[in-house]
Amino acid sequence: MYNFDQEPERRHLVDEAGLNSFLSKIYGYMALAVFVSALSAYLTMTVFASQMMSLMVHHPWTMWLLLLIPIVLTFAINFQTTRNPVASFILLMITAIVYGVTFAFIAGTYTGQDIASAFVASATVFVVMAILGTVTKKDLSRWGSYASAALIGLIVAMLINMFLKSSAANYIFSFIAVIIFTVLTAWDA
């Protein structure tokens, strides 16, 4: 057994090849989850559209269930990650399907061009910031705490704006959210 107390300077060594392999694997899982969500959304709005609309009309609480299930699944994934990676992967795919179904109903109010533009823009920002956060030599640890604090402030402001109903504030909050999540993506990577 190696005693790190004998050589404290070795504690900070990182196996870069192993880290890059791990990050590639994680990003691959996330890409698969996004694909599964997109496929679920597509199938929900095309092949199963009449069944899903009928379900929503006859059981309006179903939308609340679709919004709450991912929260429960996220906690289950966090609990299962180290105990059972296969179960975590299955829960991730179930979460992706539920998000796909949920987003299908939200996306039903927008055109295909709007959705494609939003997807391409957000995917591009995510990929660029993930790469930047992975390869940069700069310490981004402080950025994460600032962005997390800003995210909490944004959520509070958005909750207040639910009562004020200011479209101008919603527009400004959209830009702020993009900046916050861009910083959080770079920090997290």
Rank of each mutant, 00 (worst) to 15 (best):
I152E: 06
M162G: 10
Y99N: 07
L184V: 04
A169P: 00
F181K: 08
A169R: 08
S54C: 09
I106Q: 05
M162I: 08
Y146M: 15
W187G: 03
A157H: 08
L92W: 03
V57C: 02
M53S: 08
I71S: 11
G100P: 02
F163V: 06
T109M: 15
Y146H: 10
I90A: 12
L151V: 01
S88V: 02
V47S: 07
A104G: 14
M158P: 00
P70N: 05
L65E: 07
I176H: 06
W64L: 14
P60H: 12
V101Q: 03
L91G: 03
L132A: 13
M129W: 12
M53V: 00
A121E: 04
I90C: 11
I90N: 10
A169C: 06
A49M: 13
A147K: 09
G133F: 02
V47N: 05
G133S: 04
I77S: 03
D114N: 11
L73F: 04
I90R: 10
P85A: 14
P70D: 02
I172S: 05
M45W: 10
D114S: 10
M53I: 05
V72S: 06
I179Y: 15
N170R: 14
T134I: 00
N170C: 06
L140V: 02
F105E: 06
I69W: 09
M162N: 11
F163K: 14
V47Y: 10
A149K: 10
A123H: 07
L67G: 02
V101G: 05
A177L: 11
A49V: 09
A189T: 00
I179G: 13
S54V: 03
N170K: 12
F75R: 08
H58T: 06
A87W: 08
H59G: 00
F175T: 01
P60I: 04
